[in-house]
């Protein structure tokens, strides 16, 4: 869907609440809203928000994570291995891998973390240096 020239991916989720309070901050702070959602599509819609917040909560340095994720995504698109539909890792899969590397090397910089990722992928047994 395109709205005023902006590409928008819009999904819908109905929750089992009498009404939606204006002060409600979302399913990431109130997991009880998942109760009663027998529809698989609805739970998946809500999980998009919850997964993103959990990833941001579990990385040591958000700015490093974001820079590295941009770099990795750009590399993956250039190599043609960025497509969940075609069987490769999609956006969330790459984000989870990058978050894991940020956990293993919490004090490093994005460029060094990229090198550490290469070492880890090659089966390195210790620090990348």
């Amino acid at each position: 869907m395109r709205f005023r020239g902006v590409q928008v991916d819009l999904v819908y989720a109905g929750v089992c609440l009498p009404w939606c309070p204006t002060t409600w901050s979302g399913p990431q702070c109130d997991r009880s809203v998942l109760r009663g959602l027998d529809d698989l599509a609805t739970a998946r819609s809500l999980n998009g928000i919850r997964v993103a917040d959990e990833i941001l909560r579990l990385v040591p340095e958000t700015a490093v994570f974001r820079t590295m994720l941009r770099c990795v995504k750009h590399w993956a698109k250039a190599r043609g291995v960025y497509s969940n539909v075609a069987g490769f890792l999609g956006g969330i899969g790459w984000a989870i891998l990058v978050a894991r590397m940020c956990q293993l090397y919490p004090n490093t910089s994005p460029a060094c973390c990229s090198r550490a990722s290469s070492a880890a992928l090659r089966g390195g047994s210790g620090p990348a240096r």
């Binding site: 902006v6 590409q7 928008v8 991916d9 819009l10 999904v11 819908y12 989720a13 109905g14 929750v15 089992c16 609440l17 009498p18 009404w19 939606c20 399913p27 819609s45 809500l46 998009g48 928000i49």
Partner: peptide
């Protein structure tokens, strides 16, 4: 690309 969802009461 903006991705978001709408939550509505049932």
């Amino acid at each position: 690309a903006i991705t978001f969802c709408v939550i509505w009461f049932d």
